[in-house]
């Protein structure tokens, strides 16, 4: 085999494998879309086809106009958005402290934070319900935000800490000598350089809260405080599953997550620290 033939076959293999993986990973999403535009009467009558012979947006219209889905959607946006912002704010501060300061009990704190990640959350549902109930935090979006924030802060702190570790200490020391307080140096010098980390943390927490079902189901029983994963369950009734509407709702639920990542992807891929120190 000549070398150009070999490199062509390498190329084919390389991209062939990638294409296979992408197709494999994205196929369920494709199926989601396909079912969401398939009219009910074709759903079971056409057999397995890659695209229905006739498509319609009827499921979308129904979901948007005749179900509680817009409310669930709004609740989800509020809960996930607030959780993401809150967690990132706390994690940025605590991650910075973990990265830059040595303080008594630091190892214990790290240990404790690790422990919170170790056991199944389902164990905590009952005690948290008991705690929240007298405080009026069940059936409330605030309650969900508090729970999600509590469970996401440890991991987000480790994430942010690793980003801060990558930024030379000299930078904030230079700023502090230039006349900035430590907090100002953090805000004006370090934080702008950690935007990729902030974006990653925001994205991670947002998607985690967006798709959380367990606590959303257990702590909320009224429709007006339900998030969309709970809402999706509403399409399952005792005798049937409304696949078309459920899939349409699923597609709609993907939109904010996609938009969110589109917004932050610039920061996710950017290496902002280039040129800071010798290189």
């Amino acid at each position: 085999m000549t070398s150009s033939a070999r490199s062509t076959s390498h190329w084919l293999l390389h991209y062939g494998l990638l294409a296979f993986y992408v197709a494999f990973a994205l196929f369920p999403l494709y199926w989601l879309l396909k079912v969401s535009v398939t009219p009910n009467d074709l759903l079971y009558s056409e057999g397995i086809r890659l695209w229905p012979s006739r498509s319609s947006l009827a499921h979308y219209t129904f979901v948007l106009a005749h179900s509680d889905f817009p409310l669930f959607f709004k609740n989800s946006v509020i809960v996930s958005g607030s959780t993401a912002v809150l967690v990132t704010l706390i994690a940025a501060l605590s991650g910075y402290a973990m990265s830059r300061f040595d303080f008594r009990g630091k190892m214990w704190l790290v240990g404790l934070m690790l422990i919170t990640q170790m056991f199944p959350l389902v164990m905590l549902v009952a005690p948290i319900f008991k705690l929240f109930s007298p405080l009026g935090l069940t059936n409330s979006l605030t309650g969900l935000v508090i729970v999600y924030t509590a469970f996401n802060v440890p991991f987000a702190t480790f994430l942010m800490q690793s980003f801060f570790d990558g930024i030379p200490k000299d930078l904030e020391e230079a700023a502090m000598i230039d006349g900035a307080s430590r907090f100002r140096a953090f805000r004006q010098i370090i934080l702008p350089l950690t935007l990729p980390g902030v974006a990653a943390t925001l994205g991670f927490v947002f998607t985690a809260a967006w798709s959380e079902l367990l606590f959303a189901l257990m702590l909320v029983s009224k429709a007006d405080a339900s998030t969309f994963p709970v809402g999706l369950l509403g399409f399952v009734s005792k005798f049937s599953v409304d696949f078309g509407q459920m899939m349409a709702a699923g597609v709609l639920a993907l939109i904010p997550a996609c938009l969110f990542f589109l917004l932050i992807q610039r920061y996710l891929v950017q290496g902002l620290t280039a040129g800071a120190v010798k290189g």
Binding site: P168, L171, A174, A175, A274, A276, V277, K278
Partner: peptide, 8 residues
């Protein structure tokens, strides 16, 4: 600083 420590 040895590393220059310029704000990138």
């Amino acid at each position: 600083f040895q590393s220059y420590a310029l704000y990138p």
